[in-house]
Nucleic acid binder design. Structure first.
Length: 487
DNA sequence: TTTTGAGTTGTTCGA
DNA sequence: GTCGAACAACTCAAA
């Protein structure tokens, strides 16, 4: 008598530990087969950006190795998931399929269709919570609505119960669990996820270790070196207080509850020096922002393309392509902005504080539609996440939930002086300014000719003048946004 | 139903 | 340099 087969369909949960879908599939005597489907065919699914494709290649490579050590094969397939997953389940003779839930509109539609097809075929199908601390539909206001303000959302979610502790690690399965028949799988190289001609991924390779082991190592490094002092240090792009777990969370290489509880454990000093409660609370709050973004996306599936506040639909955006290109290239003439955009281009990542500064400049000073920024981030960020990216851009534009007042326009000079006081961040990513003294590195156009000459800076040649004067840009933005109120 | 307090991340101006 | 007020009015969420 042959053992039953369970299929686990992995998507944004590329890990072994605390993976409820994998655990459900591996529960019992059945042999387990895992699959990943590169779906570039289903309607509405957004194609992965370039940086995400690079990350996915390496994450899948690591995952295949880790699964193989547990006697589980990873099958790679390309095509519309509604066809591919049921077909694979039938070919394997699988009796059930498990997966972790996704929260975008198109993703939910695909998953529903897959579930219906499987059940038609008499195959059990079960979805699990592998990505969130709180399912979006479980957090509701007293009147049954979804929350549109962060603080009451976070309070209400936690009042319903603190995040569950992750279960103990999955017990490795014996080699006998391997499938006895050969299963066709795509070659990962054929998917061409890695850039070539040119290979622009050098900076990514130097910065990141994709995969579950990399995620665990990053968490450990953060707990030891970033959590203590996090509440204040997290705003400093020149220092190393941020967790940098975002891409690992985006691909599900580590679960949010693993991260949550690992930070909470440091309160007591377990496994290290005790950390002030304020730092742990601030970090937990950032995880709750991730929850809130998913909450918003679930209730507003078009969050990445449609203004959360409809009155923004009439906003007179100025689509100046030359200005957008300068922003993308890190040539705006505002050093903190250019440092951020170049950090993004080189490493696939940008410090959170700097994301707000560059976003504000694009939307307010340049009056460019936030969706242009959202698309650029989607393509270039290794942590590109449908919920976080869309919610973040709508927040900075003022069109989102719980958004800042329109008159809150970031001053890129002041922000640079406040959060990169020595200019170390600018010097690192805008090397042509590295020799300027800290007093002018955030505003090189104010430096004397002697200072510029001594630092080897030729304004307008080696480094541009500001794309728009701050005071003029601010005034223009306030006028445009104020008109929105009267409309 | 009405009322009330509150709301991630800022800047500028004038004292 | 530091401090408080002004910048608008609105929406949200709960009492």
């Amino acid at each position: 008598m042959t053992a039953a087969t369970h299929l686990v369909w992995l998507r944004n949960d590329l890990r072994i530990a605390d993976n409820p879908a994998l655990a459900a599939a591996a529960d019992g005597e059945a042999r387990v087969v895992a699959c990943f489907v590169l779906d570039e065919h289903s309607p509405g699914l957004r194609p992965l950006g370039g940086a995400s494709r690079w990350w996915l290649h390496h994450s899948l490579t690591r995952l295949a190795e880790a699964l193989d050590r547990r006697g589980i094969a990873l099958v790679l397939r390309r095509g519309a998931a509604t066809d591919v997953v049921p077909a694979l389940a039938r070919a394997l003779g699988a009796t059930r399929v498990d997966w972790s839930r996704r929260y975008g509109g198109a993703e939910i539609a695909v998953d529903k269709a897959v579930k219906a097809r499987l059940r038609q075929d008499g195959i059990e199908a079960a979805s699990h919570n592998g990505a969130l601390l709180y399912e979006p539909w479980t957090v509701k206001t007293k009147t049954g609505e979804f929350f549109k303000v962060f603080t009451p959302f976070a309070r209400s979610a936690r009042a319903g119960g603190e995040p569950a502790a992750p279960p103990p690690a999955l017990v490795p399965r014996p080699i006998a669990g391997r499938p006895t028949v050969a299963i066709e799988t795509d070659s990962l190289d054929d998917w061409r996820l890695l850039p070539r001609a040119p290979d622009w991924a050098g900076g990514l390779r130097a910065t990141w270790q994709p995969g579950e082991d990399g995620a665990i190592a990053r968490l450990a490094a953060f707990l030891d070196a970033g959590l203590r002092g996090y509440a204040d240090g997290r705003d400093r792009p020149d220092q190393g207080f941020t967790s940098r777990l975002s891409p690992h969370l985006a691909f599900g290489e580590i679960s949010p509850r693993t991260v949550w509880h690992a930070a909470a454990a440091r309160l007591d000093g377990l496994g290290g020096e005790p950390v002030p409660a304020r730092d742990v609370e601030k970090f937990h709050s950032e995880l709750m922002w991730r929850e809130f973004s998913h909450h918003l996306l679930y209730h507003r599936p078009d969050l990445a393309t449609v203004n959360f506040q409809p009155r923004f639909d009439h906003f007179p955006w100025n689509g100046d392509p030359a200005a957008l290109a300068r922003w993308q290239a890190g040539q705006t003439g505002y050093p903190i902005v250019d440092a951020g955009m170049r950090q993004l281009w080189q490493t696939g990542y940008m410090h959170n504080r700097v994301r707000m500064i560059v976003g504000s400049l694009l939307v307010k000073h340049l009056l460019i539609d936030w969706r242009a920024g959202e698309r650029w981030f989607w393509d270039t960020l290794v942590d590109a996440d449908a919920a976080n990216n869309a919610a973040g851009w709508q927040w900075i534009a003022g069109s989102g939930a719980d958004a800042a007042p329109y008159f809150r326009v970031f001053n890129p000079i002041l922000q640079g002086e406040k959060f990169d006081p020595d200019g170390a961040y600018v010097a690192r990513y805008v090397p042509e300014l590295a020799r300027l003294p800290a007093s002018v590195i955030q505003k090189p156009w104010t430096a004397s000719p002697q200072t510029l000459h001594a630092a080897g800076v030729r304004l307008g040649e080696s480094y541009p003048r500001p794309v728009v004067d701050h005071d003029k840009g601010r005034a223009r933005a306030l006028a445009a946004f104020a008109a929105l109120q009267d409309a």
